[in-house]
Design a binder for these strands. Structure first.
Lengths: 244, 244
DNA sequence: CGAGGGCTTGAGCCACATCAAGAGTAGTGG
DNA sequence: CCACTACTCTTGATGTGGCTCAAGCCCTCG
């Protein structure tokens, strides 16, 4: 299932070699590892597989999702360059991960990672910070799914993408949507038709204009924020806007 | 807002005194601390407050929730005896916490807690395990809110409560529902009327019988599982059923 | 230029929300 | 002990947002 199985042994050795170096940030842990390439649609791992590795997303985007008993798919998040997947893993992956665009990742042995983190007091706060961010994102998503209507969900989603790039939180900014409408629908707990209709409505209201299938330009940022149904005030100030 | 503010200084001293003792499990950390009592409906802390403490629930139940801009409430979880609240906190509480029954808690300084965990290699895996469980629960909740219908939500909820007591996962078991219907509704993303109607329907189908306002007896456990819409198979075997 | 996949748009329907009333239960005070 | 009150829960009637089903459009790519 996991590609490049023959590759792992070499990586283990590379990981072990890193153990003495005491890197002071997570990214540094991964820096020396070879880059693996994923084509659009290719899987990184599957829900239920033994969780032997963590990954750093170097470039591109991934969707993480679960398939439920009736065959439907729930996307629980998207990952982008700079994100690390697997920090919150149990023995088995809780979800599947697939590339939604051409993507580059670095693979790290889970065992070596845990040893590394356990030995490095500098790294632990960073791990905890990422876990906390992940929890906060999950909370926000629960609020969205619990009680936002279609328009609020779509606006919240667009804002979330905007906020990944500080300085893009303003009218005139352009949002890239690397995922398909179906991905967005499965993430927002809507159908593809409702997402499409909602985008059209937002366009008719003059809040955004389409700029190709995977791109929209925000015309009225303030209105978008209002429509998102979030409180303007955020407990941690602008931290939510500064990205991870 | 937080009660017993005059009490904190003494606690800090108690916490510091613990630092030398190297406890080997989280519960042990809290064991020596005085118990604080919360009456039904009383708040433990509020969303946005500076997160200065963690709490161990010794007895009783809490709801954790957020109030959104239009005044609606989203309950993101319930806490029970043995749970620890605050492991995943940022500088400020992400949610409010209120007692839903008479509740006893122990309070631990966040700073001392972090020092303790940082000094104790035995404690860290336990912390991570709790964070992972919290993440897994959040994922499950997202799946529930994304695509389960009312009946599936209510059945999943009842099963979740049952699974807190190993051995109760069978026909004839009794489930305590310390929270109100409104709490359940706000947790499941439904209205109080829909929760009530769904419970009635399940009763009419012979799956459960009411045993007072805060108590139901499960008659057909297997059917309840089927109706919950979860896969029978769980990646980590019976772990999900063994409670925290 | 044709085929297939992704997206948009329309019509009708259904599950759940909303609105409204009434029944059951706990708590209070005389 | 009972009456009064307030709250929780249940049940019914009606409304509606988003889902389902269906068709057509628009890219992209061979």
């Amino acid at each position: 299932m996991l590609q490049a199985n023959n590759f792992h042994h070499a990586l283990e050795i590379a990981n072990v070699a890193l153990l003495g170096s005491e890197p002071n940030c997570l990214q540094a842990l991964f820096r020396k590892l070879p880059i693996e390439h994923l084509a659009t649609g290719q899987s990184l791992f599957f829900e239920g597989d033994a969780a032997k590795h963590l990954f750093e997303v170097v470039e591109g985007d991934l969707r993480i999702f679960r398939i439920i008993s009736d065959g439907r798919r729930v996307i629980t998040g998207f990952l982008h360059a700079g994100d690390i997947v697997g920090v919150s893993l149990k023995d088995h992956y809780l979800y599947s991960a697939e590339a939604i665009s051409d993507t580059k990742v670095r693979r790290f042995s889970r065992k070596a990672f845990e040893a590394e983190v356990s030995n490095s007091p500098e790294l632990r706060p960073e791990i905890f910070a990422r876990l906390r961010d992940e929890m906060a994102a999950a909370q926000d998503q629960m609020v969205l799914l619990s009680c936002k209507d279609a328009q609020e969900r779509v606006c919240s989603f667009l804002l979330k993408l905007l906020r990944r790039h500080p300085g893009h939180c303003r009218s005139g900014a352009v949002v890239e949507l690397p995922m398909t409408r179906l991905d967005i629908a499965d993430y927002l707990g809507l159908t593809i038709e409702t997402v499409s209709r909602t985008m059209t409505k937002l366009t008719n209201k003059g809040i955004l204009v389409s700029a190709g299938r995977h791109c929209v330009r925000i015309i009225k940022y303030g209105t978008l924020v209002q429509f998102s149904g979030d409180d303007e005030y955020d407990g941690d100030g602008m931290i939510a806007c500064a990205g991870r």
